[in-house]
Design a protein around this nucleic acid. Structure first.
Lengths: 135, 135, 135, 135
DNA sequence: GTGGTCTAGACCACA
DNA sequence: GTGGTCTAGACCACA
């Protein structure tokens, strides 16, 4: 039985973002695992459930699942829902997953001439006011 | 004469990044202008110089220049190097240019369960240690 | 320019085999590399060329390419044909690639009670008479 | 009474192999018969015994049995264990059963550029060292 | 019920 | 020209 019946609505898929949908899903699954909200053995929503909930083609969902499986993050179970792999390969901590976004920000801030303090202030501002990260 | 003979090597173009090369170039030119390192009238390196320096197809450089010209950021000068437009249209301040990177970071950090403080600490860490933002 | 203009017909794709088409293609590309017939930098036929030659949907070909790319075997080149990666990750020699088939054969032969000599004779027989490995 | 009380552990079922479990079981039963280790009238382990021993869904075992029954290889006996059919229909000799594995090996070896001798040497090597064919 | 494979065909980004 | 993404819909294998 599912130790953790994750709702399909736990994900946020936006076809208008530059990132392809299947990559958005991959990134979010990885983050949920890193954040401990998805643990080894937990079931993921079925391809069909996710597809209908988000009005997306099942193949698009399937693509994300397959890729994560080939990376050892998810596990196929014949005839049953996919689960988080027992020993998520190379499971990076949250900090590692955040690095690309951090580096990108710092690199751009430096090019724009931001001081350390100005950058920190700008971040706090966005953190405090960007309550709804959707869309 | 160039008020500011910018070196082609002032840019950082990496074909392995997910961002297409022409967009990397556009973003960096915009940031140099926003940071005041490139000012109205300053010349940009020639397409050929940039292309050979970075081993990139000249058309790719040209595409970035053309797009910035159509946006009013750069100015084409017959037989001479492109320059920064006299009154760069829509020149946003640095903070506005940094917003996408800030939002993306905050959104990912939230999904990973980072607290406000943990995020600020992580940022400072990257800022202090990621001295060489290249590659 | 392609160091090695590989013909699309160099591959053998059979929709009637139990193995899915995209996996057949992946296996054959890997074998061509292991056999030295495809070397780092060599271009592969385009998705479209392979698709039309073998009367297969382009996405099926694309799937094989993408997977090999994510494994580090092939390399994407924006706007140009895919090439064999410079340093094929984990490039196994031919013997390693043959192991699964060898193990399977030995395991089955043992279960059937074949002696070492009987097995070798059977193999020679197939090797000498199965000249056309197609279909 | 069972002429030959075959242990459930005589089989080797691995859910991680690409072959579905029910096919693994079918193939192994056929081979045991072809090798003379299972003879007409011999009892097979019960579905339940096999399922618990190998931690597999009973329906999966049942499917293999049913298919072999419909092929005339096994015989259903009301209230008692299934047995090997009196006159196993179409009982192919071992060599015939080995053909697919032989053909596959030869085909792959050819693609990899193995000579006849190299292939025979590789086979002997695996035969001599792969004493434990399990897993 | 679950996921896997494939087609036909569209549209897009990049060089 | 190149590959990438996605849809709509079919059919299959497995449990």
């Amino acid at each position: 039985m599912p130790a953790n019946p994750l709702s399909p609505a736990a994900f946020n898929l936006d076809p208008h973002l530059p990132d392809p949908i299947y990559r958005q899903l991959m990134a979010q699954i990885r983050r949920l695992i890193a954040a401990g909200q998805l643990r080894p053995g937990d079931e993921l929503p079925s391809v069909r459930a996710l597809a209908t909930t988000h009005a997306v083609n099942p193949m698009t969902i399937s693509r994300a699942f397959s890729q994560l499986e080939s990376e050892g993050v998810l596990q196929r179970n014949r005839g049953a829902a996919m689960t988080v792999a027992d020993t998520p390969v190379d499971s990076p901590d949250g900090l590692a997953l955040l690095q690309p976004a951090l580096r990108r920000l710092v690199s751009e801030a430096r090019q724009l001439g931001f001081s350390r303090e100005a950058l920190l202030l700008a971040l706090q501002d966005v953190y405090d006011n960007d309550k709804d990260p959707a869309s």
